[in-house]
């Protein structure tokens, strides 16, 4: 069955802006945001990731699912961890991987982006993994790629970082199981954090008992309550009895003066120390999407302490990215006919 994809010149404003993530048969095609996935797809991704965890234990850490496919890491913004885990995920699925680091120029961005896309498409790419400092960049690319190409959002501006959120809920699920009784606190720079936004969507999609955000007013988006979170400005209050503490990186490079007094002051109020962590449940786990600013948002003794699962997050991220890649590529039979 041939599917004709319309390529509108003007961004399509569908009633459901997330519908673009699925093909005409309701299969996952792109992963741009957690919104619109629903508990079924989030759970399916996590279950698939669980199966990929075992691949790491074998002598040949590869399965041949994406043999002969080409995955292009299209990074308009620098990243080490995310790019390398996407690269490793693609390689463990036996795909060929091309890494392109493209610095954005201020002028004629839209046009050059499309030109870049057309060029890479001409190299027979099957999947773009996109990171960009502008919100909506991955959506824009997804609207313009050829029908057989999948786009994964590896972080766009302040908007979304869905695979990070999926690996976070995957990590929580592996340790805690059911989400409904859990209290999860996300702490720090919510305002600049695409990770926090995606985490909140993922946690609420999975019916987490209570999602809290803990931050100073200056580092919270204006309508944060609408995302379905309980807001705390006092960290000691917010951490009380939580099962999971997610620390965010203080995005110093995105700060425009006046949002923060000093880093020392921030650490005193919102940095995670052993003493503050003691207010959470005794079996609480500590997470951080990395790279951590030690002594700014998290004390080294906590980051390296027994409750920290920061390194597990990194390992889990490979399996989760394998799952997303495999699921998006598993739909190509008819579209690509």
């Amino acid at each position: 069955m041939a599917v004709n994809f319309v390529r509108p010149k003007i961004p399509k404003l569908a009633s459901d802006p997330w519908a673009i993530q699925f093909d005409s048969e309701g299969r996952l095609r792109h992963l741009l945001t957690i919104e619109g996935l629903g508990p079924e797809w989030v759970t399916r991704i996590l279950d698939t990731a669980e199966n990929f965890m075992s691949v790491t234990d074998r002598e040949v850490k590869k399965v041949p699912l994406l043999r002969g496919r080409t995955v292009v890491n299209l990074f308009f913004e620098s990243s080490t961890r995310t790019r390398t885990t996407f690269e490793l995920a693609a390689k463990r699925l036996s795909a060929d991987v091309l890494n392109l680091n493209i610095s954005t120029s201020a002028a004629t961005k839209g046009e050059s982006l499309l030109d870049t896309l057309r060029n890479i498409e001409a190299m027979q790419a099957d999947m773009f993994v996109v990171r960009h400092d502008k919100s909506g960049a991955a959506h824009f690319i997804a609207r313009h790629v050829a029908p057989h190409v999948s786009v994964l959002n590896a972080g766009d501006g302040r908007h979304a970082h869905p695979t990070q959120a999926l690996l976070d809920v995957f990590t929580i699920r592996r340790i805690k199981g059911d989400f409904t009784p859990l209290r999860v606190a996300i702490v720090g720079d919510i305002l600049h954090s695409r990770v926090a936004r995606s985490q909140i969507h993922a946690l609420n999609t999975l019916n987490t008992g209570e999602v809290r955000v803990i931050a100073p007013r200056t580092l919270l988006p204006a309508d944060v309550e609408k995302l379905g979170v309980r807001v705390f400005h006092d960290m000691r209050e917010g951490l009380r009895d939580v099962d999971v503490v997610i620390m965010l990186r203080l995005q110093r490079e995105r700060m425009e003066g006046g949002l923060l007094p000093t880093e020392q002051e921030f650490f005193r109020l919102y940095g995670l120390t052993e003493e503050k962590l003691a207010l959470a449940r005794p079996d609480a786990i500590v997470m951080h999407p990395g790279p951590a600013n030690r002594g700014v948002e998290i004390d080294s003794r906590v980051a390296d302490g027994p409750q920290s699962v920061i390194l597990q997050q990194v390992s889990n991220g490979i399996a989760v990215r394998m799952a997303v890649m495999a699921l998006c590529m598993a739909r190509r039979s008819e579209d690509n006919a």
Binding site: D47, N51, L65, A330
Partner: peptide
């Protein structure tokens, strides 16, 4: 690619 990937 024909039958899709089912979570195992």
């Amino acid at each position: 690619t024909h039958i899709g990937l089912h979570p195992q």
